[in-house]
Write a protein that binds this DNA or RNA. Structure first.
Lengths: 213, 213, 213, 213
DNA sequence: CATGAATGAGGTTTCATTCAT
DNA sequence: TATGAATGAAACCTCATTCAT
């Protein structure tokens, strides 16, 4: 069994080529179809290895799923960590963050789908806390940025920064989720592309929608 | 086989007690676990009938799933249709709509989960257009309300009403989705309950977050 | 799943023809080859049913094994119960009992092998108490017969009747066990058949082997 | 591959430490669970080596089993050969032999179990003749001792010595076999320990059980 | 309307074994 | 000498589905 992420530096985790192939194939299929719909056979076929080989590297299907989830989460976490708050005033930074966030969702759509599935599925006692870790870390970071702007007086004082973050992140996630059905909704094609969408989103969140002359 | 929804009026559809039990059991299980994870056996057990009996009422598993989806969608549609735009100015009506919408999501959480799953699942050629119908109808109605307000000059002219609707609906949906993991996020408990959440949400969407003296 | 031996009279237990076929086939194979060497496939083939059908009647392989064991034990118990102490003095009754006992072992050789295997296998905590029941019942009955003769003064007073029973039963069982390899031992063919063997056995146990003029 | 037992003197057989570990682990597991229930994996784990290493030392699973059997048989044979007929009259020698025999069974319980399993298993064409060798040698030796006493007139003339040997050995083996279930039989605890048991056994075989004043 | 019996296809997992290193 | 990676075959078991009753 390929040694788990304990005793080596991160780069060599699941370093064996075979295990990596399996992880990638599984990630793709799990993201697309969910846990139960994906058979070990199909993963083996996609990865170009034998069924038995999958069980050589991972104890069972669930362990493979968790490895995929954990692996994907790490990568997503890394991406989110790079969302620099950079320079500029509140409006500029928020706009940039929101835009990059949505871009990440699309760039890593497999991971995104995987995590969304996980959140959506009734979480039992023993379900992994992966979603928590990934979403939580990033969320906290974003909130702390917003807090600074609030302290500087650039944002309204009467709003919880976490609410703002939820709204921006949530709207991005929702947009990502309905992408697959979006071409059937003529009304919803106001935002021709993700960049455009997050620009519109940021505009509203920053300024509101009321007509104030 | 129970006659399908064509040749009878809606009230008597699947009127037989057995079929109703099956539909309810299936709805619950499909919402919680998705299509593939749910076996006919488990549905039979939950419904308290025999496996064979399920095939007596529904042609196959997929047909049962569609029946559940269609049944659920009808109920959700009915709920959404009751969302009265009622009286009041834009702010009031938007706030009321948003709040009732979120309440509906929670009241019919099984249906909501079912539809979200459906949207999330890679839509194959033959996948049902149920999501389209339900979401679409309601969405169009909401957009048209917003358009009227825009024409009256109560809302900014430079925003597509569909964008506003997306933002409000999307934020509600996102809040619903993260409910199951929410108790593990201390930062996100700013909104102690759904009502509170949609109030905060509406406030931001209406007024923006910038500190404008 | 075929209803277990609770709510019906004994005759109809596992009455469904299919389940009976499976039980018989499994008994034969388990007795000959042991638990792990026997595949569900081979049982299915022997019974003339599909693999899946076996799991329709029995929860899993182990449950089937237990059912076989329990079923066989019952039949063996019934046989042993019929070993009448009848009439005659100690010598006659003991001789008759021993002879019939050995005959039973051979007549029901499958059951005998099954139970011997069971006893031989390291018994875990949760292992069935079947052997206990079958062997125990019969053993107790035999001992009590011997006790009566002891009270009447026909047997030596200084011997525990249980020791006598053990010796007679044990020698029978041993003879049964080595049958399969017996034809390779020229020295051991003194007893051309089971009847002869138990006659010789009884003679020794009754009279000893010392040359007392 | 470790050279097989042909071209070296016995002492250096499987002398490599690795092979010895494997043999010991396999002996233990085969004795406890039988051939089919034991996987190469479990043997490797118990022996603390890799699966591949087992195939490095033994051609395949069956060859390993035979090696274990042969190895164990040799040790048991040696033990039995040491059963000195020593001095004393028939009663004394028979008593001593029986007692030491039972002690051997318990001291080498793994080997005993192994051989009993082997005897119990339907002997196919290709099954090893190990049981024959071990049991046969010892048995013949015992019988010849008894024959001498018979010639001397210490034993009854009308009994085949092989029958006596069978009775003593068989009763010992039976006692060994039921040890594992014995603590659940209150009636059978007349013999608190093996020594006691063989004493009682010898007494009966020598003198019979009838009350002859 | 309802069910128990039955099954073919396919699921996950285990197994003995090989091979390059 | 020793092992991790790999695999074909076969194990146990589940599933959706059919049919006679």
């Amino acid at each position: 069994m390929t040694t788990p992420p304990n005793n080596r530096d991160e780069k060599t985790l699941y370093a064996s080529e075979g295990a990596q192939n399996i992880l990638l194939a599984a990630e793709k299929l799990f993201a697309l179809q969910g846990f139960s719909s994906v058979s070990i056979s199909s993963i083996a076929q996609t990865a170009g290895v034998s069924k038995a080989n999958i069980f050589h590297h991972f104890e069972n299907k669930e362990a493979l799923y968790l490895a995929v989830l954990s692996n994907a989460s790490c990568r997503m976490s890394a991406l989110l960590a790079e969302l620099d708050s950079g320079e500029g005033n509140a409006s500029e930074q928020i706009a940039r963050y929101t835009q990059q966030h949505l871009k990440n969702l699309f760039n890593q759509s497999n991971i995104t789908k995987l995590i969304l599935r996980q959140v959506q599925t009734e979480n039992r006692e023993d379900s992994p806390k992966v979603a928590h870790d990934v979403l939580g870390e990033n969320f906290t970071r974003f909130v702390s940025i917003l807090e600074k702007f609030q302290e500087k007086g650039e944002l309204r004082q009467d709003i919880d920064p976490a609410m703002i973050a939820t709204l921006l992140v949530g709207s991005n996630v929702f947009y990502f989720q309905i992408q697959s059905v979006l071409d059937r909704f003529p009304e919803m094609q106001f935002a021709e592309n993700p960049e455009n969408y997050s620009a519109l989103l940021t505009d509203i969140v920053l300024n509101g929608i009321l007509d104030k002359p």
